[in-house]
Computed example of a mutant assay.
Amino acid sequence: MYEHLSGCLYICFAYLTLFFFKRYPINMEPQNLTRVSEFLLLGLSDEPELQPLLFGLFLSMYLVTMLGNLLIILAFISDSHLHTPMYFFLSNLSLTDISISATTVPKMLVNLQMHSKSITYVGCLAQVSFFSLFACLESLLLTVMAYDRLVAICHPLYYLVIMNPRTCGLLVLASFFTSFLTSQLHYLMMSQLTFCADTEIPHFFCDLSQLLKLACSDTSINNIVILFIGTIFGGVPLSGVLYSYYRIISSFLRVSSSGGKYKAFSTCGSHLSVVCLFYGTGLGVYLSSAVSSSHRKGAVASVMYTVVTPMLNPFIYSLRNKDIKSALWRIIIRRT
């Protein structure tokens, strides 16, 4: 049931995205709204001798990210033992991690290989839109997974009743639609801005905050929207995660046996590690940009949540999870 639901959700996501950009094309006469046709991504370093090293490093990290997350999705789809709500959400999280990396890293690799820094106006707005979509979606999925662990630990007898396939599908769809509408709001507002002569973005992808600094028109509305959305998608999901773990820890304290405490903690230890990694790196980038005036340092710090975090998530879940390791071994044995 869960593998069919997951496949349907993936297809719905793809068709909805294609429908929107076909219905509202991303090049909504940009020549009447902007004086530039492309931007320059300054990247992480200007030193020519570092370009091959950066290309090899980020290509390796990108391939590891793709492989690790695809293995998680493959294990979920092919192994019936993993057709549970927890692994259903995990497979969607892996798909989101793949999408975040695919939004930012390939363009950087092309620019490093071609010794170019340019990105088109259309491509830049597309990066802003898709990155907003998948970053918001990851935040909401982590909150949904925390709620799943809360129900599993605090209400184990009613777990399968509460977290039935229909409820799981609705939670993922609601997370996607909310993130989708948010990303399109950013896109529509950015497409109305006028950009002038300075087209250099001190980043390796089109970061929304850096792009606003290049606009000649008034960006006060955009800044208010970014602050509001950042508060909603940062504060509310994080508050939900903290509340869930407050309830979970309270349940831990009521468990008398040490074996029961270890079993309960092992079911949510990986998720807690991913939550700390995602929100910790995001908060670190925000604080570093607020303290340091160097835009290049902010770009280097943002590598943590755009590249490193999606790469580490599969390892965090698979190395501590016997079910996933067993499923992967069964896949390898069947193939060989």
Rank of each mutant, 00 (worst) to 15 (best):
S289M: 07
C168D: 13
L170A: 10
T199D: 00
L211G: 04
V275G: 08
I26L: 06
L95P: 00
T167P: 14
Y15G: 08
I100P: 04
F205K: 00
Y147I: 03
F76H: 11
A301N: 08
T219C: 14
I226H: 02
H115I: 09
V307P: 14
I232T: 05
L16P: 01
G7H: 10
R166T: 14
P156G: 02
T309A: 15
T167L: 14
T309Y: 13
P25L: 00
S91A: 15
G234D: 01
Y159G: 06
V172S: 07
P156T: 03
K322Y: 11
T309R: 12
G282C: 08
V122C: 04
I316T: 00
Y262I: 10
C154Y: 02
H83L: 15
S129G: 14
A146Y: 06
H155E: 09
N111L: 08
E49G: 12
V105F: 09
S99D: 03
I73A: 13
S91T: 13
I324S: 02
L242H: 03
V255R: 06
G123N: 08
I221T: 14
P48E: 08
D207K: 01
L82M: 15
T104K: 06
A301C: 08
C206M: 07
F205W: 07
L137C: 04
L74G: 15
L171Y: 10
F55L: 09
L283G: 05
M1K: 15
P237R: 03
S209C: 04
Q184N: 13
I153D: 05
S179F: 03
I11Y: 05
A327T: 12
Y2C: 15
F39K: 00
P85M: 12
M1G: 15
K322P: 08
F180N: 00
N223I: 10
S94P: 05
L170Q: 12
T306F: 10
F134A: 00
T219N: 13
S116M: 10
F131A: 06
V36E: 00
F13E: 04
R320S: 15
R35P: 00
F13I: 08
L319W: 13
A327G: 09
L63D: 09
L170W: 10
L112D: 02
L185P: 07
